[in-house]
Design a protein around this nucleic acid. Structure first.
Lengths: 250, 250
DNA sequence: TTTCGAATTAATGTATACAGACGGTGTCCC
DNA sequence: GGGACACCGTCTGTATACATTAATTCGAAA
């Protein structure tokens, strides 16, 4: 192991940010809990300056909330909050798809997207999908969504999509892994992949409204999965950040 | 003058942020220009720590861009960037209006909104609209949009709308003042105000699709004004941040 | 004269010291 | 016994000193 836990290649700020994010998403820091800077300094190993910087960035990311009297606390999300975050993500992704369709994309730009689709196809083709295949799907799905968003060729919009996807449970690939243990897992993936193909087709044919509608509906798949996961919370370890979601009864 | 320029009631970070934002929006700092921390320290009067904090926040706000080698530079926007930012804002505002319509709002919640509309009506009723009336319109319009967004009762969405409205030229009231010298100023305001009334009507009648479509179209009014302003750049002083927009020929 | 390289300078990233403010606890007074 | 005030401790906000890294400039060699 040539590089230890404290890697010199990345800045202390990034290291503190990653460290804190893991702590938050894993649930080690409970929602509503105040984050002590000194405690964060100890766990991350960095000094107070980078830790403070990381805290500000995590606040902008949506994981933390500023306390009026000073400092930060871990944000708590209701089920509705999460569903709305997914809807927001789907809406801006839909706008990106519409932009791509209306403004037109070259076949050159569509090439990597279609390659991505073919790779996903080869994954979902196997009938009992292996856990490794699910893992690959997560990466490919994220890649597809990123490529699709970039087709809009609109830096401001790409920025907004990234921000809307920052929360792990709002991200396009947030709920894929949780499906791996579900019985109709393959069914869901096939539907999602079909939507992928449809939206690319819509963009190719410059059908803006269709592309937008499909991307919105595509996000609803994630919303459906969220409800499934929250009903039987056996997949907690598969969805980072699930600990941040407070059920109605809490 | 009991409180001088350096007010003790607000934090140094906020002061530095306001100071830098003014410098950027006024055009004193040119787009693409690297922001020197030391220089910012001198102008804002704060120390390096709050200045750095302010720089990070202004980056998240969208006014600055991180330089890979370190530090920040003033972001430059193309006309297309600005138009897209307005479209994004309209899209998320549209989602907020749809949420409000679909989920229903009490007449109690609609009350302040309608009061706002009545006040705007009394402003646009005067035929040559005075400059003061324009100024009041800016405040009331901002209030209307904020109230409308809150009707969605969705913290994640409200957050995204706020972020999409952060850039001055993307904000709902960004282009109002620029109209004050235009011949068809009152015409534009009457149309915008009519859209205000229509969207409230749609929300009352729980017509989600209609409410969403109107808010999207409402943002297009700002887009139209942007084109007007960019064609005859005589109103530069009325739109803070216009200096950030680089025309195609630059 | 141009280009490559090294050295110097200046800037950012980091660490830490200091001060003010908020919260908690204990005691005293009513 | 209860409430209020005061004191103490801890934490954040701020300031500054240090180190490392990037950029620029000067010089030398081709």
């Amino acid at each position: 192991m040539v590089e230890r836990d404290n890697d010199r290649s990345v800045s202390q700020t990034v290291r503190a940010q990653l460290s804190l994010r893991d702590l938050i998403l894993s649930g080690d820091l409970r929602p509503g809990e105040r984050i002590s800077e000194l405690q964060a300094v100890e766990t991350s190993g960095a000094s107070r300056s980078p830790v403070r910087m990381a805290l500000v960035r995590l606040e902008e990311e949506g994981l933390l909330e500023a306390i009026p009297s000073g400092g930060f606390m871990v944000k708590a999300f209701s089920e509705r909050d999460v569903l709305d975050s997914i809807e927001v993500r789907g809406t801006v992704e839909g706008l990106a798809a519409r932009f791509a369709a209306e403004r037109g994309v070259s076949s050159r730009d569509l090439e990597p997207l279609k390659g991505c689709l073919d790779e996903i196809d080869s994954l979902v083709r196997q009938d009992p999908i292996s856990v490794e295949a699910f893992s690959s799907y997560v990466a490919l799905n994220a890649r597809f969504h990123a490529l699709l968003t970039e087709l809009s060729r609109s830096p401001p919009l790409i920025r907004q999509v990234d921000r809307a996807s920052a929360l792990p449970f709002a991200s396009p690939s947030g709920f894929v892994m949780t499906q791996s243990t579900l019985p109709d897992a393959r069914h869901t993936l096939l539907i999602a992949q079909d939507q992928h193909r449809v939206v690319v087709d819509a963009i190719e044919n410059r059908e803006g409204a269709r592309a937008e509608a499909i991307m919105r509906e595509h996000a609803r798949v994630a919303a459906r999965n969220l409800r499934l996961v929250l009903r039987n919370k056996t997949h907690s370890d598969l969805l980072p950040g699930l600990a941040l979601i407070r059920m109605a009864g809490d």
